[in-house]
């Protein structure tokens, strides 16, 4: 009787999962197939997932006919790696201080970090541009990297994660004579792997897709990141959807790979069980 019921539940569960999976996968699959179609076939608006006139021209144009593709890829990787690494460190440090340490101004800084999130970026764009110009960082890697090495959203997220950690952790660390920094690096960070993994995914993606600020501060094609470079395939009057689709595939896949890689940290039971 109960067996039967749970089997039914399972069937329903899988049905829902598959249905939702279709909703998420169909647009992506369509974009993937469109990247192998000529423009005319995409625009004709057919619903076919298998290209009628299969072509590699779109990818060919991106990889081979743009001499700077390698440069753009390199720039994107360089910036994303630095931004992700520094964010993981700095955001976790700040989040940890806000969640677990007592200091004058703790609440004020938390409030400021929240407040920063609430002001829309459209209004800080021009002032930040002027600051970068003042620093002489227009058209440079540091101009792309430094302003984004901390991120209020993920400081906030890390704080919310650290707040749940059991107090016994630090008490034990203190008894062992560890300093704050040692506690943070040796005990707290290893336990925060799932949160760090989530952070890594999103910061990498954010940096990878970052468009508007690089668009404004970079004028040198050599320094372009992938989204800027691939944007040169767009026309002013006409949207070349075939190139846009292929370009978007080219830069979706690395982000997806990073996600798949960090996904392995989302497995229950890795964490606190050891410390008990």
């Amino acid at each position: 009787m109960t067996m039967n019921r749970s089997r039914w539940l399972k069937v329903i569960l899988y049905a829902i999962l598959v249905l939702y999976g279709m909703i998420t996968v169909v647009p992506f699959a369509w974009a993937l197939s469109a990247s192998f179609k000529p423009l005319s076939e995409i625009i004709a608006g057919g619903v076919n997932f298998i290209p009628e006139h299969f072509t590699l021209d779109n990818y060919n144009k991106i990889f081979i006919q743009s001499p700077l593709f390698g440069r753009w890829l390199f720039n994107s990787v360089l910036v994303a790696v630095w931004v992700t690494g520094l964010n993981l460190l700095f955001n976790s440090m700040a989040g940890y201080a806000l969640a677990r340490m007592r200091f004058p101004g703790n609440r004020l800084w938390f409030f400021i970090i929240l407040a920063v999130l609430m002001v829309p970026g459209q209004i800080t764009l021009i002032p930040s541009y002027l600051i970068l110009k003042y620093l002489g960082w227009l058209n440079s890697y540091q101009g792309l990297i430094v302003p984004t090495v901390v991120n209020a959203t993920f400081i906030f997220m890390m704080r919310q994660f650290f707040i749940n950690f059991p107090n016994e952790l630090e008490e034990a660390a203190q008894l062992d004579g560890l300093s704050r920094w040692e506690t943070f690096v040796q005990i707290v960070l290893p336990l925060a792997k799932p949160a760090l993994a989530a952070q890594a995914i999103f910061i990498f993606m954010g940096s990878w897709n970052n468009f508007l600020m690089p668009l404004i501060i970079l004028s040198d094609q050599d320094l372009f990141t992938l989204p800027l470079g691939l944007n040169t395939f767009k026309g002013q009057y006409i949207s070349y959807w075939n190139y846009i689709m292929a370009a978007s595939m080219v830069f979706t896949l690395p982000a997806l790979a990073i996600y798949a890689f960090f996904n392995r940290y989302f497995i229950q039971g890795v964490t606190f069980t050891g410390s008990k």
Binding site: L125, I126, Y129, L130, K133, L138, F211, L212, L215, I216, S219, Q221, N231, T232, K234, G235, Q236
Partner: peptide
């Protein structure tokens, strides 16, 4: 080549 938000970019750069 500035292919997106052309005038926004130009205006911002003119301001700077």
């Amino acid at each position: 080549v500035i292919n997106d938000q052309y005038m926004d970019v130009i205006k911002t750069r003119l301001i700077g």
